[in-house]
Design a protein around this nucleic acid. Structure first.
Lengths: 159, 159
DNA sequence: ACAAAACCAAGCATTTTAGTCAAGTATTTT
DNA sequence: AAAATACTTGACTAAAATGCTTGGTTTTGT
């Protein structure tokens, strides 16, 4: 389990979906605009999220993405592992004979550590995050900005 | 808090120090040999570990590095933050106006998440790791290899 | 038909990672 | 004092990851 900005982007986007669940399918363009993530990058991320069946997609006008299940049933860990392809960064590769025909100190240690972090992130769902105060506040501000300044859309697109 | 292989190398090296604490100062050459990490890379890592006062160094023949305090008083989080210079990967930089003059959804969320992971890793000390079974076993194997095959030292150095 | 959307894929610029290399400086044993 | 050993510093590099761009193709509601 790695924690990178890629995972953060994915979690943010999924959180956006969770926040706007009641609005029906959400387009990537909407997410791009609200969260300031490029459309193409979102496409890449959602390709994986869809393969992991974390989201459902609808094509055509009025289409978009929706969470595949209740936000409380999607863990942050699910989202992160979906977009972070697990590169085996151990020298060992799949085997565990990276050193003197035995596995290195690193191997066991990091595997265990990683498992515990994973477990921790499994305990936090998108639903949990939506309920948090800070998230609510920012989301409200984003909605407001959206309705008040129609021009900001183009301003962002042109920058 | 980022989790990369760099942090893993650092934790591994520190764990090696913890395991050989009783042997007096440990040279980086020893760690390099036992853990299969290049000497120069270790030098970089230990430069930071020393600046964070996680290790004490002794120069001259017979010198080397030692944990600056008991292994139970050094958290895994300490080691990782020491070597992972905190790059502000948020668009916001120091400010929090990355989007529409307000902070993005990401900001609060990831800060909080990151804090929790940090807290978690603060709860695991090098001492804890040393006590684990798997670590003991690998360490024993490494010691054995060291005493049995004196030639492996040169073999590694020449490769 | 047309436009809005998802989907797909190649490729690019930049940054980060994981190291190496080279040339030091400092300490201690002899 | 000399040599051995240890640490420091900074430049450099190959490979990977990041985030984006471009240029499509399908699918579908109107």
């Amino acid at each position: 389990m790695r924690l990178t900005t890629k995972g953060r982007y994915a979690v943010t986007a999924m959180l956006d979906l969770a926040l706007h669940y009641k609005d029906g399918p959400i387009t990537l363009a909407d997410i791009s605009q609200r969260q300031g993530i490029s459309l193409s990058y979102l496409e890449q991320l959602f390709s994986r999220l869809r393969k992991q069946e974390l989201v459902d997609s609808t094509r055509g006008p009025g289409g978009g993405y929706r969470l595949s299940r209740d936000s409380h049933d999607i863990a942050v860990a699910d989202v992160i592992t979906a977009v972070d392809e697990k590169v085996e960064t151990t020298r060992c590769g799949g085997l565990s004979n990276c050193q003197d025909d035995s596995q290195c100190l690193t191997h066991d240690l990091w595997t265990e550590l990683s498992a515990q972090i994973h477990e921790f992130l499994m305990g936090i769902s998108l639903g949990n995050l939506v309920e948090r105060q800070g998230v609510q506040e920012v989301a409200a501000r984003q909605e407001k900005a959206e309705t008040n300044f129609g021009m900001s859309k183009d301003a962002v697109a042109n920058s």
